[in-house]
Computed example of a mutant assay.
Amino acid sequence: IKVDPRYTSQCCPCCGHVEKSNRNKKIHLFTCKKCGYKSNDDRIGAMNLYRMGINYLANSQVPNTVVAE
């Protein structure tokens, strides 16, 4: 599946706050300006992409199947 990667390194996985200044590219540090959550910026992006993929799969409808008796 494909998910839109835009802003995934700027979005807090805890509170959902998106802000460009949440991410310090020079030292690869993400610090949420709203809740204070801190982690590696690439890890934050990966966490958000993973969550988006899981949400996509959870919201997908499973096709109807016929069960033989």
Rank of each mutant, 00 (worst) to 15 (best):
N22F: 03
L29T: 07
A68K: 13
C12R: 05
H17L: 06
N22W: 04
K26L: 07
I44G: 12
S39V: 00
G36M: 01
P63S: 15
H28A: 06
H28I: 01
V3H: 10
H17G: 04
P5V: 06
M52W: 02
A68R: 11
S21A: 10
C32F: 00
Y56T: 09
S39F: 00
D42I: 08
I44W: 07
I54C: 09
K33N: 08
K34I: 00
N55G: 05
V18S: 08
D41F: 12
C35S: 07
N64M: 06
D42Y: 04
M47E: 12
V66P: 02
P13E: 09
H17W: 04
P63V: 09
N48Y: 03
L29F: 00
V67A: 04
P63H: 06
Y56G: 12
N48T: 03
N59A: 08
K2V: 14
P63F: 13
L57P: 08
S39N: 13
S60M: 12
G45T: 01
Q61H: 15
A46G: 08
Q61E: 15
Q10V: 04
A58S: 11
K33E: 14
T65G: 10
L49R: 08
D41R: 14
D4R: 11
T31F: 00
V18Y: 01
K33W: 05
P5A: 04
S60Q: 13
K20S: 05
K26E: 09
F30P: 05
N40A: 12
K26A: 13
S9C: 03
K2L: 14
C14V: 07
I27E: 03
K2A: 09
C14N: 02
V66E: 14
A58P: 07
M52Q: 11
S21W: 03
M47H: 04
V62R: 12
H28P: 01
H17N: 14
K20C: 02
Y7P: 10
K38E: 07
R23C: 00
P13F: 11
H17D: 11
N55V: 04
I44Y: 09
S9F: 03
G45L: 04
I44K: 09
K25H: 01
R43M: 15
S39L: 02
R43P: 10
S60V: 13
L49K: 13
Q61F: 09
I44N: 14
C35Q: 03
V3M: 05
L57C: 10
R43F: 13
F30N: 07
V67N: 05
C15W: 00
I54V: 15
N64H: 07
L49E: 10
A68N: 09
P5Q: 07
N55S: 12
C12K: 04
N55F: 01
M47N: 13
N48L: 02
D41I: 13
G36D: 03
P5S: 06
K26I: 03
